[in-house]
């Protein structure tokens, strides 16, 4: 184990996989000479050269399509979106080409590509640069979608994503790049996709969250512990395929669920989790599932409005208290 930042963990994952497999190439805007808009690809050009670390012009649809075409012939491209907001320009390539190629070809052509970069709310970047993007992707059969919360997950999951034979959408967060944590240096350390993590065991309520919202939930859980509320924290890590089993297992234990998500609530991750918890564990619930979500508004610029848009610790704590005070059978 070594202590490193989330950014360094991603960088290490890329290096290890590029050393391990000559078919891995990194493609994107400013990934080489500039060393990444957020420095995730720092040093890669020096170590691997311009053949494997490919700077592109600003043409998301074009270079994502190139990554997909190259993957059809067996390369394993890691395409960086400078931020995921720009992935919308490549949405057709991701949804109509990458996700469906294997199916449309009856299994003849799979697309082992990773599309990665930062996404989610970020400080005062306003409507077009500060938004949760996973929603647009996890609806699509054929894609896998990852949101890694900790440096360790960032490394282990990125390595799994690169080794996966299918298109993986890997959305990091610029607000987490500087977060430090323990990371295994073992190059064989990978975290399989589709496995949730129980970040903290508890008995009274299951709180499901990821990325920045998980860090907020941890603080809330610490505070509520003083009131005698024992919170179990579950991080899905992979949103598609979702580890329904781990979540349901936790619900069977605590009988109460709060889902926290940064994005707008309407048809969000909380809606989905709430639906499958109801389907699979209705009789285990002692209270209705609560959702604490981003407001159903675009991200405003003004600091005070921005705060209102995202779930605060107070709102999370209030929701947890509500479900815990609800009178179950």
């Amino acid at each position: 184990m070594a202590v490193m930042t989330y950014r360094e963990a991603l960088n290490l994952a890329l290096r290890e996989e590029m050393r391990r497999d000559p078919r891995v190439v990194v493609i994107g805007e400013e990934v080489g000479l500039y060393e990444g808009a957020y420095k995730v690809t720092q040093g890669l050009l020096t170590e691997f050269g311009p053949k494997r670390v490919v700077d592109t012009p600003i043409a998301e649809s074009g270079f994502t399509g190139i990554g997909i075409g190259a993957a059809m012939l067996g390369l394993r491209p890691v395409v960086e979106m400078m931020t995921f907001n720009f992935a919308l320009l490549a949405l057709d390539q991701i949804v109509n080409s990458a996700a469906k190629m294997c199916y449309m070809s009856g299994g003849q052509f799979n697309v082992p590509i990773v599309i990665r970069g930062p996404g989610g709310p970020a400080a005062q970047l306003a409507a077009q640069h500060s938004q949760s993007m996973e929603t647009y992707f996890y609806h699509v059969p054929g894609l896998k979608v990852v949101r890694p919360t900790t440096p360790m997950d960032a490394k282990g999951l990125l390595k799994a994503a690169i080794r996966d034979d299918n298109p993986v959408i890997f959305i990091e967060a610029e607000t987490l790049y500087a977060v430090k944590g323990e990371v295994p240096e073992d190059p064989d350390f990978v975290i399989p996709l589709g496995q949730a993590a129980v970040r903290r065991e508890g008995t009274d309520v299951t709180v499901i969250a990821y990325m920045g919202m998980m860090y907020r939930a941890i603080e809330v859980a610490d505070e509520l512990a003083k009131e005698g509320i024992s919170v179990e924290l579950v991080d899905p890590r992979t949103l598609r395929p979702m580890d329904v089993e781990t979540i349901i297992g936790s619900v069977r234990k605590t009988h109460r669920v709060v889902v926290v998500e940064a994005g707008a609530g309407f048809a969000g991750m909380g809606s989905e989790i709430s639906a499958f918890v109801t389907e699979h564990a209705f009789d285990d619930l002692d209270a209705p599932v609560e959702r604490v979500t981003g407001a159903n508004a675009p991200m405003p610029y003004a600091r005070n409005l921005e705060k209102l848009k995202t779930p605060t610790k107070d709102k999370i704590a209030a929701a947890i208290r509500r479900v815990c005070n609800a009178n179950g059978s």
């Binding site: 994502t64 399509g65 190139i66 997909i68 075409g69 190259a70 993957a71 059809m72 390369l75 080409s97």
Partner: peptide, 9 residues
């Protein structure tokens, strides 16, 4: 773009 990608490979 897919054609260019195949050519890239």
């Amino acid at each position: 773009p897919l054609a260019a990608g195949a050519a890239f490979a």
